[in-house]
Design a protein around this nucleic acid. Structure first.
Lengths: 243, 243
DNA sequence: CCTCAATCCTGATGTGTATCAGCCCAGTCT
DNA sequence: AGACTGGGCTGATACACATCAGGATTGAGG
């Protein structure tokens, strides 16, 4: 039913059964399509008056920079995800957004977004739901960094990525294409790149997965799930809540 | 103007200028007031059909439990904060909520909440904003655990708590009342309680702050801010965005 | 008054991960 | 072809924090 619409519409539709008028408003947000090259930041920490974007193609990451030069990647976004929603609601960006691959995204002005919300209340609720889902991922990420060791943390992270990509048809339980470098993993997992390398070797030696040449191959799905205590409940739910 | 209303109304009002009808809807959510004792969990991981709550008095924390018995506290909530919003939107709780002190909260049924959102769109937008603000805190927490050492992390955490409490008039730059134990800090900061104790001693020896008998005294605010690279931009903004 | 449970506090020892230093390989630019 | 760059890989060493073990203090309850 939503197949003719954007990945975002498909995602939101899984929570709130959107009617044609609401879908039209959503489509209306996809006017100014932009293309960005990998590596050049799309939004900077502290930047004001930045727009939000709806990601159509490619991967980006949002991260925070510390004074000593290290960075922490907070989250990766894939097609259908919102970028910089917080930057709009707060009028100033509290994080950076870097395209990992070449990226296609629709720019959404703050006024358009806020108007859409007040005129289409169910849409606002749906976006609230999507934001909560993102927050749940950040929370799980927090738990990982706070309480899991490097091996479990890495396994958990890759399983989560896999689950998210499966929802948009870009992965199977056998693996997925992954444009991330070991440096990206390190910055996301709160590890050094050197240690990420050792951890990946250990995962490989244990016959759990390989991470090579832009490909993640999952060799032992159940083993990984057990190792990582992975539970995808927080990404999943059964049918639209709001009809 | 909002003083006769709940802390939540005051908080949301700082983002969206709410009119009388909207305030009435918000007040309508404060029907079933409940009281909870410290230590007995209010919501459990995996629990379905749980309600949301609006915290009126006391402190709670939300945390996740790992199989090995360790836990990670994700966030603390203070009066005016929403509890369990995600549990409602996802129909199943992905975390536990524990009252740290005796707590007063209004129970809100999922249907009431969703109805309020669709009938009062600006309210939904305001709640989206509040949720984003919470997410910003979780993100900052994530960065702290991922990239700051124990000393900076602890300082940052206490400064953030201080800033939040100042917004609701429960702290000054000189300090605040704090019902947390060193175990709570450890679970929140991803440290062992033993190490938290040493870190607190170091902060004391450096003349930065004391944490004793339920009181946090800030001795050198500027020194702490510098140590922690603290920036409260993400908690702050200037006047309602949506009029 | 004594016991018991929390909480705070401390020294000794162990370990997971960072840091440093450097090599290898594959592209790509000149 | 050579130079250069980004990414992957590895051993040696260092240190931040965990873990273990136990003492001191306080308050509650019998």
């Amino acid at each position: 039913m939503y197949s003719k619409h954007s990945p975002l519409a498909r995602k939101l539709g899984s929570f709130v059964a959107l009617d044609d008028a609401e879908l039209a408003v959503l489509d209306g947000l996809h006017q100014r399509r932009r293309r960005f090259v990998a590596g050049r930041d799309l939004v900077h920490q502290g930047q004001t008056r930045s727009a939000a974007y709806i990601l159509a193609e490619g991967w980006v990451c949002s991260y925070k920079l510390l004074r000593d030069g290290t960075r922490q990647i907070v989250d990766f976004q894939i097609p259908g995800d919102f970028l910089g929603l917080r930057s709009v609601l707060f009028r100033t960006a509290d994080h950076n957004i870097e395209p990992i691959t070449t990226v296609e995204a629709s720019e959404v002005k703050d006024s358009e977004l806020l108007t859409a919300f007040t005129q289409t209340p169910r849409l606002a609720t749906a976006v609230l739901w999507a934001a909560s889902r993102d927050e749940a991922m950040v929370v799980e990420h927090l738990v990982g960094i706070g309480r899991r060791n490097a091996l479990e943390r890495t396994a958990h992270f890759l399983l989560e990525l896999n689950a998210r990509l499966m929802l948009v048809g870009q992965a199977t339980t056998a693996g997925f294409d992954c444009p991330l470098t070991q440096y990206h993993l390190a910055d996301a997992l709160g590890l050094s790149a050197v240690h990420v390398n050792r951890v990946l070797r250990e995962l490989r030696e244990k016959g759990l997965l390989t991470f090579q040449k832009g490909q993640v191959e999952i060799l032992d799905f159940k083993g990984l799930v057990a190792l990582a205590e992975f539970d995808l409940g927080y990404l999943d739910h059964e049918g639209p809540l709001l009809r």
